[in-house]
């Protein structure tokens, strides 16, 4: 067994010929496929190795393994936070569109144990969708009377609707009313309209999100 210690990271990397089994090993992968090799190698490059080999991530208690069929060597990472590193690996595969390879049970358990929660604030987007849900209906089937949305500012929605704008831009302009602040709604609408014409709705949305906290930004930039 050849070992190499990386001091600053507290990681010990060993390579073994063949494969040695561990007491409590759990496979990271659901499939053992040649294709996995390519992904493994890319991931290993991040961690400083680049040979076709089995991977074992262990902290001495639990071992997380990714076995590659036909590999001669095994690389063993002795790391203090094996769980985190193992989850990094899972995340890497999932983000590169290889989510069907990973072992779902282990992934779910790791997420629970590490307490990982992805929080995204989608409130406003959902609200906008609710509002928009009425509009494509009007476009495709004109006789669609019920508007599924609970528009908060009715006079504002009326104003945006009268400008005969795309439904997307309309929804965004509505959200600016929350930003409101010291400037008038008409002003915000005007700015949003100009932006949406030149950059598209997404840019407007991002800009307005930023401007929500400090309405001064709106005034100074587009006064």
């Amino acid at each position: 067994m050849e070992c190499k210690k990386i001091e600053e990271k507290g990681v010990e990397v060993c390579t073994v010929r063949g494969y040695i089994s561990f007491a409590s090993e759990q496979s990271l992968l659901a499939v053992e496929d040649r294709e996995v090799v390519e992904a493994l190698m890319k991931w290993l490059n991040v961690y400083g190795a680049s040979v076709e080999q089995n991977v074992v991530i262990t902290d001495g208690v639990e071992a997380y393994t990714a076995r590659v069929p036909g590999a001669i060597n095994t690389i063993i990472y002795r790391v203090p936070n094996a769980k985190k590193v193992a989850y990094d690996f899972i995340k890497y595969l999932e983000e590169t569109g290889r989510e069907e390879w990973i072992n779902p049970k282990l992934a779910a358990r790791l997420e629970l144990e590490l307490g990982i929660v992805y929080v995204k604030n989608l409130e406003e987007r959902i609200k906008y969708l609710k509002r928009a849900s009425g509009e494509p209906a009007a476009a495709s089937t004109p006789a669609m009377p019920e508007d599924g949305s609970e528009a908060v500012k009715s006079e504002e929605t009326a104003a945006t609707a009268s400008t005969s704008h795309g439904e997307k831009a309309g929804g965004i302009e509505e959200e600016t009313t929350a930003a409101g602040g010291s400037i008038t709604i008409e002003e915000v609408c005007r700015v949003a309209r100009i932006l949406s014409e030149s950059y598209g709705a997404d840019v407007v949305y991002k800009y307005l999100l930023k401007a929500k906290d400090n309405p001064v930004l709106l005034q100074t930039l587009y006064a």
Binding site: A107, I116, V117, Y118, K120, S133, A137
Partner: peptide, 23 residues
């Protein structure tokens, strides 16, 4: 996928909106 719990809740809400054929 416990980490995505919150996003899944949003998705269920959208799915309710999707009951409308036009949407």
């Amino acid at each position: 996928a416990p980490a995505y719990q919150e996003i899944l809740l949003y998705m269920e809400e959208v799915w309710r909106m999707c009951q409308k054929p036009s949407f």
